[in-house]
């Protein structure tokens, strides 16, 4: 049986005096890809942020690699290093001077007190390998402000790849890409997932992608309306339960990734 990477038990998170996420329980095993789907305002991003400790929870337990996440969002440095998070759109100030190599190197570092020159050689080697794997080594010395949307996604994947991870959490990671860019992003993501054995938890609005690639889907609208394989969880009746009775699913037939 595969190892449980993430376990959520009866999680409740309040935002502005209302329960954005209520009594949610599920678990993720190594090497699986789970999508969280649901309408806007359903609590998907709140769920992700609570798991990461960005947003405090009011009730429930979160276990990452068997270790409980404290109320203050604390985990051991080793467990923290095994998680990578890609936020929606990766907002950053483009006036900040930072090269691609510098940014990817931040994914390698164990954050905390250390001398500024510590780990210079192994970091450089890991950055080179990660950027080469996502075919972005040529961007190494470029400022991240000069990258296109697709290049930024590649660099973000290199940030995840630069150190061995166990759990990848994506909040609508391909947002902002065109159809081709999105297709290339997922192709690369799933190649890396196979290679690295990552467990992936991702928020997605693309139900076709979820059907094609994910092992499980969680339908969330404040509470967990249903969960299971995409065939079961994304059935018409379950989608109506999640998105409302007026929801009409449209299946794309021309896209292939």
């Amino acid at each position: 049986m595969s190892e449980t990477v993430l376990a959520i038990e009866q999680l409740t998170v309040y935002r502005d005096n209302y329960a954005a996420v209520q009594d949610v329980s599920f678990s993720l095993t190594a090497g699986t890809d789970t999508a969280v789907v649901g309408p806007n305002g359903a609590g998907k991003s709140t769920l992700i942020q609570a798991i990461l400790g960005i947003f405090p929870r009011q009730k429930g337990q979160i276990f990452v690699l068997g270790q409980p996440l404290s109320q203050q969002g604390k985990l051991t440095a080793e467990v923290r290093q095994s998680i990578a998070y890609l936020p929606q759109n990766f907002p950053f100030d483009r006036r900040i001077p930072m090269t691609v190599a510098e940014f990817v190197g931040l994914g390698w570092d164990r954050l905390g007190l250390q001398l500024p020159w510590a780990g210079r050689k192994p970091r450089r080697k890991a950055v080179r390998e990660a950027l080469s794997r996502v075919e972005a080594w040529h961007l190494c010395h470029q400022p991240i402000s000069s990258l296109s949307g697709g290049e930024i996604k590649r660099v973000l994947l290199a940030y995840c790849l630069v150190r061995p991870r166990r759990l990848l959490i994506l909040d609508e990671a391909p947002a902002g890409l065109d159809v081709r860019g999105e297709s290339e992003f997922y192709q690369l993501l799933y190649e890396l997932k196979q290679e690295q054995g990552w467990a992936i938890l991702q928020v997605s609005h693309d139900l076709d992608m979820v059907r094609r690639h994910c092992d499980r889907a969680l339908c969330l609208n404040q509470t967990l309306r249903c969960q299971g394989t995409p065939e079961v969880a994304l059935s018409s009746s379950n989608l109506s339960l999640t998105y409302g009775s007026e929801f009409v699913p449209y299946h794309h037939t021309c896209r292939d990734y």
Binding site: I54, D93, I169
Partner: peptide, 9 residues
């Protein structure tokens, strides 16, 4: 560069 990514770490 990105505060949420730092919190996640």
């Amino acid at each position: 560069i990105n505060e949420p990514m730092a919190i996640a770490r």
